[in-house]
Design a protein around this nucleic acid. Structure first.
Lengths: 212, 212
DNA sequence: TTGGAAAGGTTAACACTGTTCACTACTTTT
DNA sequence: AAAAGTAGTGAACAGTGTTAACCTTTCCAA
């Protein structure tokens, strides 16, 4: 049985190597440059070999999508220790923003591109987006804790969560797409996007503080 | 000179027909399906002819981007008559949301895709995004009016505007990409995205109201 | 031990994509 | 009438995702 195991280990290995190659191309050259043929070239295999390990390209993209959520959850991990609910909520927002600024390509595949969401719809029984759910649940629970601490009283938890997510995601999205940059070049002389994002986030936090 | 004019009129006409064909494909079949060859087929010309009227594909996409802003500005037009600044601000938000829900493809090309923004950077002297500027200026002025009416006191107008834009855009973006849908299927039984968007928007408005 | 099935991988091809080059016709100008 | 410019095209290049047919090599049972 040893040989068989070595084989299957080798197989799992190749599957991993494909994803590693895809990730490498993805982070160094962006989504556009991540083609099946280039991945194949990277691992020194034929392009068709990739189809023995992944159903199609969207399958690989979805794997990267999941990889990204793994990273984000690792970034979120320490925040669970933050005791003050509102401080935790702020920390989640900051952490989310930092992630988007640090890994714009991953952010795109995780929260902007349609393909991974379509992949879910097509390949699952019913669209169950587990990765997103876990992150959202953390936000949801934190907001519930905030409510117990006197914030967002009389408000619907889910609605508050969706709105908060939208606000921070909106900043990330406008940054990643380049719209924030264009906007700032036009209306301001200032060109420091990160600072603007920081400040807009503070504005949002100041609104939330008013609910107490 | 009559013949010459007729010719140049014909030429402008063909340029317009190309854009019309592109728009038709774009709204009926989406961005993916809008290829140079299909546009050519639609107007019954050779694909290469299109390059006599548009520099490249991104040129056409940018034309659609502008077209979209024309539509949005037309939607905004009546809102200028709203006297109460805060009511006007709310109306802008609602109008913006309605636009994104009604024309998701256009919204994508206007506020999500990178290509049109890159086109600006490459083809202009310095990235001057006039279409966006006009819309943003309207928002900016409205917020300034709100400040005169007691809202957002002691706050930076631009920061408030960027934050407001982000919040509403975030909702639109999550809707267009399908993330909001996936999220709702997972955490709620409710599946009415439009209603959720409406409610999240109300939450945001309730925050803004607290600043007075 | 040998025949056949299964596994792993590749080559060639299909149907697309954006884009360019060389080449027609035809019209205008000199 | 010759030269120059204009509008349009067919063929081709380089690239994409994807599939079908084919080859080895390995494994397993008769």
């Amino acid at each position: 049985m040893g040989i068989k195991e070595r084989k299957s280990r080798h197989k799992e290995d190749l599957r991993k190597r494909i994803l590693e190659a895809a990730k490498k191309l993805f982070v160094t050259a962006g989504y556009e440059a991540t083609s099946i043929r280039k991945i194949a070239q990277e691992i020194e295999f034929s392009p068709t070999t990739i189809y023995l390990y992944y159903k199609d390209k969207s399958d690989i993209i979805y794997a990267l999508h999941q990889e990204g959520f793994l990273m984000l959850r690792q970034d979120f991990q320490p925040l669970m220790q933050v005791e003050s609910p509102f401080e935790r909520l702020k920390a989640i927002g900051k952490c989310y923003l930092r992630f988007a600024l640090a890994h714009p390509d991953f952010y795109e595949v995780m929260f902007i591109m349609k393909d991974p969401m379509k992949y879910l719809e097509v390949n699952c029984v019913e669209g169950e987006w587990e990765e997103g759910e876990r992150v959202f649940d953390f936000l949801l629970q934190t907001i519930r804790d905030c409510q117990n601490a006197g914030y967002f009283s009389e408000m619907d938890t889910v609605e508050v969560a969706v709105q908060a997510w939208s606000s921070v995601h909106g900043l990330c999205s406008l940054h990643v797409s380049g719209h924030l940059k264009s906007m700032m070049e036009v209306v301001l002389k200032d060109n420091d996007q990160e600072r603007m994002i920081e400040r807009a986030f503070r504005v949002f936090v100041s609104y939330l503080e008013l609910t107490k």
